[in-house]
Design a protein around this nucleic acid. Structure first.
Lengths: 158, 158
DNA sequence: ACTCAAAGTTAGCAAAGGCTAACTTCTGCG
DNA sequence: CGCAGAAGTTAGCCTTTGCTAACTTTGAGT
């Protein structure tokens, strides 16, 4: 899974003769990944608002992200274009099935990361802030590892 | 002009009628933080190249980030504008004191995060990838917590 | 010494994600 | 009802970080 969320970023390697100094990153999330981070943050916030109030209005997102009307509108348009949300003029914002799936995943990730940070002794406020940044970069494997050590303690090996 | 009265984007919270649903994020790293993430990645890569080969050429960064010449040039120009690197046409790229400091910090963060991921049982390859994404979002407090638990184990209280 | 490919530069384009300013629509209340 | 202010929209601009294409400079090999 995760395949359904990938936008853009097709392979297209380029090779340059020179020797292998710095190993090519191969991750290169940079650009398009940043876009989906924003998408994740938005669908998560929309899901939260809907959970809390029944509906989500643009103003909720304005407050949440501390950006302007216009920016929210822009972003929502992109999300709609990408099939994550549905909204009509002057109507509340709702999530598509795809959007809901993404939101659920993001929320779960977020919760695990935050709980894990708390578990290693990070303060509530720092855990809140850091988990928001970190959640987008945590692979499934790492997420599982976090869950595992919280449940079972540190594996003795190592 | 108009500068002293621009209330654009200072505090100016707006609260919208309904109750406090979504807590305002207050972090909102989004844009400008993303720029410094790129800066960190670049200075780190430049420092690596210099450590490995003595000098860093644009092509090293092309290989490392898998972007084009032009993109590297662009980015390097910005870094130079921001006082992180120095370079003259057709000359290798070097770091300023500021750039070196940033690189050292980034590298240290990176190492701690990666070691920590390995410590909780994440595979080498995943730890490599994830730590690159995570490092930019880890606060000092969280970094200390990681170091602490690696040294002392999980604090019992909590 | 010349040539030619690799490395570097420059210019111009695009999309994301910000902004302000100016407009329209909606809504609550006097 | 009517209207002011809140919410939403639209247009236009900016920066970052990518790209391609076309150019120049450098330097290695014959």
């Amino acid at each position: 899974m995760d395949s359904e969320f990938t936008l853009g970023r097709i392979g297209l390697k380029r090779f340059h003769s020179a020797s292998a100094k710095l190993p090519p990153k191969s991750h290169h999330r940079t650009r398009s990944d940043h876009a989906s981070e924003v998408a994740e943050d938005y669908v998560e916030a929309i899901a939260d608002a809907i959970a809390a109030q029944g509906i989500c209005r643009a103003m909720d997102l304005v407050a949440h992200f501390d950006v302007t009307h216009a920016t929210v509108n822009n972003t929502i348009s992109r999300l709609q274009r990408d099939g994550l949300v549905v909204t009509e003029p002057y109507q509340p914002i709702s999530l598509t099935a795809k959007g809901k799936r993404m939101a659920a995943k993001a929320r779960q990730r977020h919760e695990v990361v935050k709980a894990f940070l708390r578990w290693i002794g990070v303060s509530e406020s720092t855990a809140t802030v850091d988990s928001e940044g970190i959640e987008h970069h945590v692979s499934d494997e790492t997420l599982q590892a976090m869950k595992r050590v919280m449940a079972d303690g540190i594996p003795p090996s190592r």
